[in-house]
């Protein structure tokens, strides 16, 4: 039996001035699925994620989250609906520099979800421990490595109990030796059944973790399927070219 998708995009378009960044994206994500989005820079991968949580509201097309439309007329209430259900982690971490790791994880719990300090802190500590930072709760972001900052950012998003997590090139700003510690957290999340959309250049990670891989170029989905299909045996010429370039070095 096919369950209703947790997230569904229909013909989503987004333009910045003259540039049409998304030119009709259709996508269905089932609960617990891990979708890895790959493609050259400028292909619209990040914009796609930003459209999904309405940081960049799409101009045309519809997005449904848990069966409810969040675009068009519904966009006004949609923003709150989406942001309480969809967590996002950014390439540049975007931790709050004036707050320690624990406060980074607690602030939105208190202000948005109305949890009291005690509850937020307990949850924050548990999450920081889970991402391997139990000894860093009191540190400020500028005292943390990139990998540590990114793990705090993941804990911060998870603290809101999201139903879907969006990861926007979360390892692209990291030194090579720090990438694994972040990817390990993503692996664990995937294993626990979190629904995830991961924009990434880590092909090995996509191959291992993804239930579906999507190759984007020029604002459209060129090809999608299982990792075996898209990464192992691509049908489209452009996918082959891209993978050839990526795997060459």
């Amino acid at each position: 039996m096919e369950a209703a998708p947790i997230l569904s995009l229909q013909d989503v378009h987004k333009r910045f001035g003259q540039l049409e960044v998304l030119r009709g994206i259709d996508l269905e994500v089932a609960r617990g699925e891990v979708v890895c989005v790959i493609g050259p820079s400028g292909s619209g991968k990040s914009t796609l994620l930003r459209c999904i949580n309405l940081l960049e509201p799409p101009e045309a097309g519809r997005i449904y989250l848990e069966g409810q439309e969040i675009t068009g007329q519904a966009a006004a209430e949609g923003v709150d609906f989406v942001r309480r259900r969809v967590g996002m982690v950014f390439q540049q971490f975007n931790l709050f520099p004036h707050k320690c790791a624990l406060d980074n994880v607690c602030i939105a719990q208190e202000k948005v979800l109305g949890r009291d300090r005690e509850e937020a802190e307990a949850k924050g500590r548990a999450l920081l421990e889970r991402v391997g930072l139990a000894d860093k709760v009191g540190e400020y972001p500028d005292r943390l490595s990139g990998g540590q900052q990114q793990r705090v950012a993941i804990a911060r998003a998870l603290a809101m109990d999201p139903h879907v997590m969006l990861f926007d090139e979360v390892t692209s700003a990291l030194d090579p030796e720090l990438i694994k510690e972040v990817l390990d957290v993503l692996r664990e999340l995937a294993a626990e059944g979190m629904t995830m959309i991961v924009v990434t250049h880590e092909m090995g990670f996509a191959e291992e973790v993804a239930s579906k891989v999507m190759f984007m170029d020029g604002g459209v989905i060129i090809e999608d399927g299982t990792p075996g299909e898209v990464l192992g045996n691509p049908k489209q010429e452009r996918t082959k070219q891209f993978l050839g370039l990526v795997l060459e070095h």
């Binding site: 949580n53 940081l55 709150d80 942001r83 967590g87 975007n94 979800l113 809101m160």
Partner: peptide, 10 residues
């Protein structure tokens, strides 16, 4: 990015 992070947290 600070605004975006805050907004993405609801």
């Amino acid at each position: 990015g600070q605004t975006e992070a805050a907004r993405s947290l609801g």
